[in-house]
Simulated scan of single mutants.
Amino acid sequence: MSALALRRATEADIPFIMATERKPGYRKTVGQFEDAEHRAHLGNPDWLYLLHEGMGLALLCGLGNRDGNLCLRRFMVTEPSIGHGSALLPQVLDHVFVQTSTHRLWLHHVEGNEAAARLYAKFGFQHEGVDRQAGVRADGTRFNLINLSILRPEWAARRA
């Protein structure tokens, strides 16, 4: 996949974004926004949507964080389990650490999502802890969120 294939999303990409986040299984592990929420995020300078039309996307928030902490709010691929995540995540990391002043990229993933845990560990994310029963599903059930992060120096060392 070419680095040029990763680009900033626009409002014209909202149907692709919504279709991707509505793939089977993502409602429980990734979540989803409605059209109006995506439009608001795309117009907010604190948010960054990066996408590759054939592989997936990353939704990031916190660009204005004074301490350089950026949240990878959502990372989704169009076809799970065929390598799209392993191809796309390094491009997202490169974009974040080359194009922004981010020092720490952090995320939560749903406890039990072992595919996500393996992917993030493969690219240098470190386990920071558990937010117990921090998430709630539409049916009212609660779940734990696992905290991970990667620091700029860690990304640079892996890239070298």
Rank of each mutant, 00 (worst) to 15 (best):
L107F: 08
V96E: 00
F97E: 00
Y120M: 07
L107R: 00
V92T: 07
E114S: 14
A117H: 07
V110G: 00
L105S: 03
T102G: 08
V98P: 00
H109T: 12
H95T: 11
H95Q: 07
H108M: 08
Q99S: 15
E114L: 15
A117G: 09
V96H: 00
H95L: 09
V92H: 00
L105V: 10
L105D: 02
F97M: 04
L93T: 02
D94A: 15
K122S: 09
R104E: 05
Q99A: 15
R118T: 14
H95Y: 15
F123I: 11
K122D: 06
W106V: 13
V98N: 12
A117I: 10
N113H: 12
W106G: 09
A116K: 00
A121W: 10
A117K: 07
N113R: 05
E111A: 15
F123R: 04
H103G: 12
A116C: 06
Y120N: 04
V96C: 04
T100H: 03
A115W: 04
H109G: 06
F125N: 02
L105F: 06
H108T: 11
H103Q: 13
L107H: 04
V96Q: 01
G124F: 02
R118G: 11
V92C: 05
A121F: 11
T100L: 05
D94L: 06
V110Q: 04
R118M: 11
